[in-house]
Design a protein around this nucleic acid. Structure first.
Lengths: 116, 116
DNA sequence: GCGCATACATAAGACAGTTATGTATGACGC
DNA sequence: GCGTCATACATAACTGTCTTATGTATGCGC
């Protein structure tokens, strides 16, 4: 879709991960792939952002992880949303939508007269 | 509108300032007040974020500033959008809207089958 | 065997917020 | 005149989350 990859705004990655894990357990690489694909290749999640983010979410108790070996014999750390995490996902998505709405208010507002 | 003030996402303040200055020259305090009011009191711009941001924008050549004394006798540094700044405003607003759209794609995407 | 996609991890650095603090003046009530 | 509030600017210290760079290792196809 895009020419230059979009840079993530700081603080916006967690909600993407939570939403992704809301569809079911996944390992890091699969989360990254899903975000990239579902964004139409506009968002590329760097590993340096992804893995620390997953750690943070685990420390908060929003996700849990376990090592698993796939049928093909590859090891991967699989993440699952906890119950708390599922609630957090809903509230984080709502918070994002509020943020977008507030921004729209400011960007669409028209002053009567001068600002200053 | 809200109980707890919304925390600004890093990297999102500049476009608010640019959009505000797009309505005409204003000093820092007035910019802050306009953003707060037009957001319905949801966004409170901290001085510690505002003034460094205005410096950055000036260094980029997107705004210019001059000291002025109002009729009431108060000094204030008044900022104006440059021509480059006006183009930047449009492109930054568009970039924000693209970001919102990309996010919506990910948040609304539904997998067929499992992610992993 | 080689290259590529897969899979994880972490260190160093940048950047832009928050928090706290400081200065100073005008307006208003008492 | 004095206290208090809104106005107006500024900066230092801190924090968190991203980018960039680097490293390890394995499965699969050719």
């Amino acid at each position: 879709m895009s020419d230059t990859p979009i840079r993530l705004l700081k603080g916006t990655l967690d909600v993407l991960i939570l939403r992704t894990l809301g569809w079911g357990p996944a390992h890091g690489y699969a989360i990254s792939r899903w975000i990239r694909q579902s964004s139409g290749d506009d968002l590329q999640i760097e590993e340096g952002a992804l893995y620390p983010a997953l750690r943070r979410l685990e420390e908060k108790g929003w996700v849990a992880s376990r090592w698993e070996t796939s049928e093909s014999g590859r090891d991967a750390r699989v993440y699952v949303l906890t119950e708390v995490g599922r609630r957090a996902m809903r509230s984080e998505v709502a918070a994002w939508q509020r943020y977008v709405a507030v921004f729209a208010r400011v960007l669409d507002a028209r002053p009567r007269g001068s600002i200053a």
